[in-house]
């Protein structure tokens, strides 16, 4: 009885240490015909402390990076044609910037979604298939990891 209790306690402790209250919902990878794609998901932190995601890897890609799509200031638009109609001036320029870490707030959530924060998967080893299950490994602070099962979707 005591042993069984101990095992349960150990398992609980292990589970706790794995994600420390971090849960992932609705993880998916976009189906594309080329070698670079993105993964999206909702990170839910049920713990009382913020959780930091420091990196990501996946067996399907040579590299995974944390990225943020953001507006870019094209500085001066030098060389732009200034005869454009007013509606065409100052159109938003977007770019991707690598981010060092994702912070999931205590008892909060962080959504990775198109046109926002995302995981970039670079140099896919094989073409993706719709419905395929893809493993993503999030590297958390403190040397912990969290394995995520994502589905390949054409969306």
């Amino acid at each position: 009885m005591l042993i069984r209790f101990g095992v349960i306690l150990l398992l609980l402790g292990w589970a706790f240490a794995q994600g420390q209250g971090l849960r992932v919902e609705n993880a998916w990878v976009r189906l594309v015909p080329n070698q670079t794609t993105a993964a999206y998901m909702v990170l839910v932190n049920t713990g009382a402390r913020p959780v930091r995601v420091l990196g990501v890897s996946s067996p399907i890609a040579a590299r995974g990076e944390l990225h943020q799509t953001q507006f870019v200031d094209p500085n001066d638009h030098l060389g732009m044609d200034h005869r454009h109609s007013p509606e065409m001036k100052g159109l938003e320029v977007t770019g991707m910037r690598p981010v060092k870490e994702l912070v999931v707030p205590a008892r909060g959530r962080l959504e990775l979604k198109p046109r926002g924060t995302h995981i970039m998967l670079i140099d896919l080893r094989q073409p993706l298939r719709q419905g395929q299950r893809v493993r993503l490994v999030l590297r958390l602070e403190g040397g912990r990891t969290l394995s995520v099962d994502a589905v390949v979707r054409a969306q």
Binding site: R30, V32, N34, Q35, T36, T37, A38, H67, T69, T94, M96, P114, R115, H118, M120, L121, A154, Q155
Partner: peptide, 13 residues
């Protein structure tokens, strides 16, 4: 461009 993982496929889709 092809190697654009977020904005381009989102818009093309």
């Amino acid at each position: 461009f092809v190697n654009c993982p977020d904005v381009c496929p989102t818009t093309m889709l």
